[in-house]
Every structure is written in C-alpha cells, then in structure tokens.
Write a protein that binds this DNA or RNA. Structure first.
Lengths: 204, 204
DNA sequence: CCACAAACATACCAAGTAGTATGTTTAGAA
DNA sequence: TTCTAAACATACTACTTGGTATGTTTGTGG
C-alpha cells in the first residue's frame, strides 16, 4: 500500500474517530465518564452505533484513547511544554499555573480539569484507565521535578529542597484547586496562585 | 404526642433509615453516587425497595440526607473539632491534617475522601447536592480561618496573613491530596504533610 | 469493472435503572 | 381489643444502558 492511498483510505475513518473522541471529551468533561452514555455520544456526533463500535471495542477502550489522544497532548501542551528548558523554575512554574488556570482552552471552573475529574471518577474502579491517567500525571510531575532540579543546578533553588516532593505538592495544589473551584468557583484560582507564589518564593 | 411515644414509634424506622444511609455511604464512597444503584443499596442492606422509598422520596434526597447526616458530622468531628479554641493554629492545623490523613475512620487512599469525591462528581450537575456540600466545606473553611485569626490575635501568626486565603489553601491542599492519593497512593499524604509544615512555619 | 475489505448503518437484546402501584404487617392510641 | 397510620414488602413498568448481529455502502487494488 502506498502512503498516499493509505492516507486517503484512512482519512475519513480517522476523521470519524477524531470526531467521536473530541465530542466525547467535551461530554465527559462536563458530565463524567459513567454519566456520558454511548447513545449520547453518537447522538451528538451524528455517528451511528455501528461506526462507534467499529472504532472502539467498548466504552473503556474509547476512554483509554480519549486519555492518550486528547487529554495527554493537552496536558503536555499546557503543563509540560512551558517548563521545558526553563531556567527560572520558580517564575516559570507560577506562570505556567497562571496560564493553566486562567486562559487554558479547557478552563471552566465549574467543570474542573478533565484529567483531575477522571482521576477522581475512575482511578479506584478501572485499572487500565487508572494506568493511563497515572502515565499522564507522572509526566507532569516529572516536568516540574526536572525544572526544580535544573533550578538547583543553576543556584536558583535551595539545595535542601526535594524536587520530587515539590512536584507532588504542585500537582496536589493544582488538582485541589480544580476540585475546590467546582465548589466555590474561580475565586479559588486566585487564592491558589497567591499562596503558590508565596510557597515558591520560599524555595529560592 | 409524648416524646417517649414518639421515640419508640420512630425508633425502628430511624434505625432502618440509619442503616440505609450508612451502607449507602460506604458504597458511594467506594463507587461513586451515580454508580451506586438503589438496587445495590437495598440488596446490601437487606431493606426492601418499599422501605427505601418510604424513607426517601428519591435517590437525590437520599444523597442529601447522606451529606447532612453522615458526611457533615464526620467532617465536623475530624476537621473542625480539633481546631475549636486552638491556641496554636500552625501546630493544631498540622496535627489535625496528620490525623485526618493517617488515622481518620474513612482513611483509604485509593478511595479518597467521601466529601471531596462527591464534590467532584455532583457539584456541576446537581444543584441541591452542590449546596449541601458547599455548606459542609464552608464550615471547614471557617474553622481554619478562625483559628488563623485567633493565632494572629495571640501574636503567633504574622499580621499580613489573610486567614480566609490560608483556609482556602489548606482545603485546596487537602482535597488535592485526597485526589492525587487515589492515583499515586498514600505516599502523597506524607509529601503533603511535609510541605504543609513548611508552609505553615512560614506563616508564624 | 470487479472483488473485497474497510467503514459504516439499522435493528435488536438482555440487563440494569429509578421509580410506582398496590399490597401487607406492626405498633401504639383509644 | 380494635382501629389507624406508620412502616415496610412485592410485583411491576417504562426507560436507558452497553453491546451485538446482521446488514449495506464505499473506496481501491488488481
């Protein structure tokens, strides 16, 4: 098979798959994984059930693809990329978080963070989704941890600071903020940013 | 009606109601609100559907009762009570959190915190449950905030510290810890406690 | 232009869902 | 004891769920 032919052959199918995943992402983001039925997904995508189950063996596999093909790239773009090669970790982590909370594409306080929501809903009950989310969040942890360690090498972060612990604390703060934001609204976001700055300053 | 007669009259019924609520609490804690069906609840409680719907108009009202009669007292006992009249807020908040994360009755990292889980699941989609959870969590916020302000009056906390903001940050940290604990396990708890101590020290 | 697999479409199903209709039991007031 | 309402029990229903069985369309390699 020529690549061109393969491309055209798969093009429409890939588009259908893409449509399903991204529409499902929106629905699941707002309503949760369990609460979003396949019937709802195919109704809003105008895709038939046959097409859905051609592309995904079952709902769980669709969820897996959603995490790996929609959520993971999104987190890489908004959480990890701003920290790559950062030479001022305290500032860069703060700015990354500020952007993430205030202008990221999926910013909506009432609905939280897609990744955090899924962790809460499926981590305890679905092993493969748990693992996929674990991979995504571990990447984020690693990005923060590395930037802290780089900061230490550059003499900008105190040596007694444990990068991995700080990274954990940042992720904890992020997920907690997204969680409390669903309850108390976006005001939480500014609170977290203020206290995060105070915390980061103290690492320098 | 005499109180005694009323007491005996309601006693058995109250027990049934209590059984339903507490068993539902366990199931919902582990599996979520939506994922816990009424059929499952009545099967594990050995209570019939007629009894269930005698005590609760519908599933939502049962959830409301669960928040107000099970979750709220639990949070009052483990989150609020340790902070009442605390004269060393930095220490007391840390100890309260340590106890809450390590020895509280509903401590199970993989399942998180019942209140936090519910916030995540229903805050965006159910207004009355949202309000009930808002009330519970606001109480917790208030307890932390008050203790910080008392600490300021006693000269133990810096005057430039905003008690309400600190309280928010504590709740954010708690919920985030419970959330990340579901993903990464109980190791998160120690990390949070360490960084919390560092944070609290800096307020004195 | 034809065979054939990829990509979809339609109809269906068994299990589960919240909730109801209609009973029966039980315990205390009179 | 008897009457009555609270407290439960049973059977049922309309609807939704994830998933399947069985088609039909579509593109493309030979």
């Amino acid at each position: 098979m020529f690549v061109g032919q393969l491309y055209y052959l798969m093009s429409k199918a890939a588009e259908t798959r893409h449509t399903i995943l991204h529409k499902a992402f929106e629905l699941i983001y707002r309503n949760g994984f369990q609460a979003t039925s396949i019937d709802t997904i195919i109704a809003t995508t105008q895709v038939t059930k046959g097409a859905f189950f051609y592309h995904f063996r079952n709902k769980e596999e669709m969820g897996l693809a959603l995490i790996n093909e929609v959520i993971k790239p999104t987190m890489e773009e908004s959480f990890i990329r701003p920290l790559i090669n950062s030479d001022q970790p305290a500032d860069d982590i703060y700015l990354m978080m500020k952007h993430l909370l205030q202008t990221a594409p999926f910013f909506q306080a009432e609905y939280g963070c897609p990744a955090v929501n899924l962790v809460n809903e499926v981590a305890a009950s679905n092993d493969s989704l748990h693992q996929a989310l674990y991979a995504v969040m571990s990447q984020c942890l690693q990005a923060v941890s590395s930037s802290i360690q780089r900061g230490q090498a550059l003499g900008q972060i105190r040596d007694d600071v444990d990068g991995a612990q700080v990274a954990n604390f940042i992720m904890i703060g992020y997920s907690g903020t997204r969680n409390m934001g669903k309850l108390f609204g976006a005001a939480c976001y500014q609170t977290y940013l203020n206290e995060l700055k105070r915390y980061l300053n103290q690492l320098t």
